[in-house]
Design a protein around this nucleic acid. Structure first.
Length: 456
RNA sequence: GGCGGGUUGGCGGAGAGGUUACGCAGCGGAUUGCAAAUCCGUGAAGACCGGUUCGAUUCCGGUACCCGCCUCCA
């Protein structure tokens, strides 16, 4: 059995991964709030932990891994969008979910085993909140239910801070009904026009954090293996999840390993709408950057480090993928990925190291191995290769013409006509290869048939 | 203010206490009418200051700078 080691945010250490049940390895990833297109920062954890999913399936068997990624379809941002556009909430969330599925599929992310929608688990959330009240970890006040952070001594452990530290320097929402400023909302009242459900505390809706606690419990149980997400979620979201789940199901342990990916920048700066460097995945796809290329760029940086999205990287990734796709075309994948690639991924998901190992395979000419290994990273798969296909064109006439011109030039020593045709061909994106053996023309990535017409 | 991450050759980006990362670009060569593609070869690094060590870019401490979270945002 391959030993997987993962950096656990909870212990701040790289630990040997030992599943609770090797026959059912369980992971949970915090998914999107569905009010708008996913931006490229949202997509990083999806791609990174898709590789983890693939690795776990490889090691424990495809039928022995359960991957849950939720869809948050109840949220004030969604409400705001509905109010601003006058559209029904369900229409907005359904549309956004469809976009999300398209965009993540374009990045080669496998579908999770389960994709629960928060609104389908309101009952479970209410039940969990009732348990928390009963056990003294939560209290109702003025239509709200709040989690009592002082009732959970470990609160703050994941993010390495104490409640007192946080209050000292933080801007916290002061509300008269809170016992402690750090107490957070489990349930809040819904005014007219805002989605709400009947509950023991009146008509209302859940707070943000409780959904993940309720859904992970429903689908993965009180204890599971891996909980992942962006580092920005470490506090407060994951901290609050731990508090809720640990108190609702004492002694179960909740998630064993917490994994967090670092943030993404664009050309060295924080991505933000105000800087004008804000991109959705769809923006990049529409610019003609293939999903596989975006994926390759993501995997070129270890997930634990900040990643910089640059157009240079996209170009480099595209060139590499094009080269590899050319090499493996028509080659059947080996039965198993190369040990070096598996070893790199098993070492805390070292995707950059794995890509280096792919380069080695390519250099050694182990194309079957390259293909099988790349698949573990979700690369070089048939389904994603459409972008790299060169158009089928008959260039035999032009090949013959160039060959004849060259033949004549060899005798006359005047190559001007040959060079003229050559540069015209290159201008049309045709790769021109001339050797002693003869002339060869190949459509390149920039191939433009329209420009070729002019040569006829 | 509190918590956390980062700083590696021209660029991107890993591992490892002592032995080539790797890729791109560059340079030299083969090949070519010239190129392209391909192949061979090659220079180049680890923010700064201390400590541990026979030896550190790798471990420890400090400094500087950058970034993130603590607040709706990933």
């Amino acid at each position: 059995m391959i030993q997987i080691r993962l950096q656990n945010t909870k212990s701040r250490r790289k630990e040997v991964f030992e599943p609770i049940d090797p026959a059912n390895v369980r992971m949970y990833l915090c998914g999107p709030t569905v009010y708008d297109r996913a931006h490229i920062g949202n997509a990083r954890p999806v791609v990174v932990f898709d590789v983890l999913f693939r690795l776990l399936r490889h090691v424990y068997g495809a039928d022995h891994v359960t991957y849950v990624r939720n869809l948050t379809d109840v949220d004030d941002k969604i409400n705001a969008k509905a109010a601003a556009t006058g559209r029904p909430i369900r229409e907005i969330t359904d549309e956004t979910i469809a976009w999300y599925h398209q965009d993540m599929a374009a990045l080669g992310a496998l579908s999770p085993t389960h994709e629960p929608r928060a609104t389908d688990y309101i009952g479970e959330m209410i039940l969990m909140i009732e348990e928390l009240i009963t056990s003294g970890h939560a209290y109702a006040a003025q239509g709200h239910v709040l989690f009592d952070v002082r009732s959970f001594p470990e609160y703050g452990r994941l993010s390495g801070r104490s409640v007192d530290d946080m209050i000292a320097g933080a801007r916290v929402e002061v509300a008269p009904y809170k016992r402690d400023p750090m107490d957070f909302v489990l349930w809040k009242p819904s005014e007219a026009g805002v989605p709400g459900w009947d509950s023991p505390w009146g008509h209302g809706r859940p707070g943000w954090h409780i959904e993940c606690s309720a859904m992970s419990h429903a689908l993965l149980g009180a204890a599971f293996d891996i909980h992942a997400g962006g580092i920005d979620l470490q506090f407060p979201h994951h901290e609050n999840e731990i508090a809720q789940s640990s108190c609702a199901h004492p002694g179960c342990g909740f998630a064993r390993v917490w994994m967090h990916n670092e943030m993404l920048q664009v050309e060295g700066k924080k991505m933000s709408k105000s800087l004008g460097n804000f991109f959705t995945v769809r923006d990049l796809l529409d610019q003609g950057i293939p999903g596989e290329v975006i994926r390759m760029v993501y995997l070129g940086t270890h997930y634990g480090k900040p990643m910089d999205w640059t157009t240079d990287k996209a170009k480099a990734a595209e060139a590499t993928l094009r080269k590899w796709r050319g090499l493996v075309a028509g080659v059947a994948p080996a039965r198993a990925p190369a040990p070096a690639v598996v070893a790199a991924l098993a070492d805390d998901l070292n995707t950059a190291g794995a890509i280096a190992a792919l380069h080695e395979l390519a250099a050694q000419g182990d194309l079957a191995g390259l293909r099988a290994s790349a698949a573990l990273l979700g690369l070089l798969e048939d389904a994603m290769g459409g972008w790299a296909e060169v158009p089928e064109v008959d260039l035999s006439d032009l090949t013959a013409r160039l060959a004849d011109l060259r033949q004549a030039a060899m005798a006359s020593k005047d190559f001007s006509a040959v060079d003229a045709l050559k540069s015209a061909l290159m201008g049309a994106g045709v790769e021109v290869r001339m050797s002693k053996a003869g002339v060869e023309l190949l459509p390149g990535p920039e191939f433009d048939p329209a420009r070729l017409e002019a040569l006829k």
